[in-house]
Simulated scan of single mutants.
Amino acid sequence: MTIKTMQQLLAEKHQLELDINRLKDNAKRRARTRRLIQKGALLEKYFNAYDLSVEETEKLLATYANFVKRK
């Protein structure tokens, strides 16, 4: 095997490792996004928070935060 071929293989290996890491990160990000959407939907459903702004939702959650943390 020539040095050039070996260098090409190492470069290809490095690129494949980068691609794998990028795919893993993308999968983690998508899973987090899905989880946040699901939790937001549950918040709207159980607290009837469909018309609340982000600030109002934060105040609502802050009101119940200590109760939830104690349980």
Rank of each mutant, 00 (worst) to 15 (best):
T2E: 09
T2Y: 08
I3K: 12
I3G: 02
K4F: 13
K4D: 04
M6W: 12
Q7D: 07
Q8M: 13
L9K: 09
L9H: 07
A11Q: 03
A11S: 04
E12S: 11
E12Y: 09
E12C: 05
E12G: 03
K13Y: 14
K13R: 10
Q15P: 02
Q15L: 15
Q15Y: 12
Q15I: 14
Q15R: 15
L16H: 04
E17C: 04
L18N: 03
D19W: 06
N21R: 11
N21F: 15
R22K: 14
L23H: 10
L23W: 10
K24T: 08
K24A: 10
D25Q: 07
D25H: 06
N26W: 12
N26K: 14
R29I: 04
R29W: 03
R30K: 10
R30M: 13
A31L: 06
A31N: 03
A31R: 04
R32Q: 06
T33C: 14
I37R: 09
Q38D: 04
K39E: 12
K39D: 06
G40Y: 02
A41I: 06
A41E: 10
A41D: 06
L42R: 05
L43N: 00
L43K: 02
L43P: 00
E44L: 05
F47Y: 13
N48A: 08
N48G: 04
Y50L: 05
L52M: 06
V54R: 13
V54S: 08
E55Q: 14
E55A: 12
E56F: 02
E56T: 00
E56K: 01
T57S: 09
T57V: 13
K59G: 01
K59D: 11
K59P: 02
L60E: 02
L61I: 13
A62Q: 15
F67R: 03
F67S: 03
V68F: 12
K69W: 13
R70Y: 11
R70E: 12
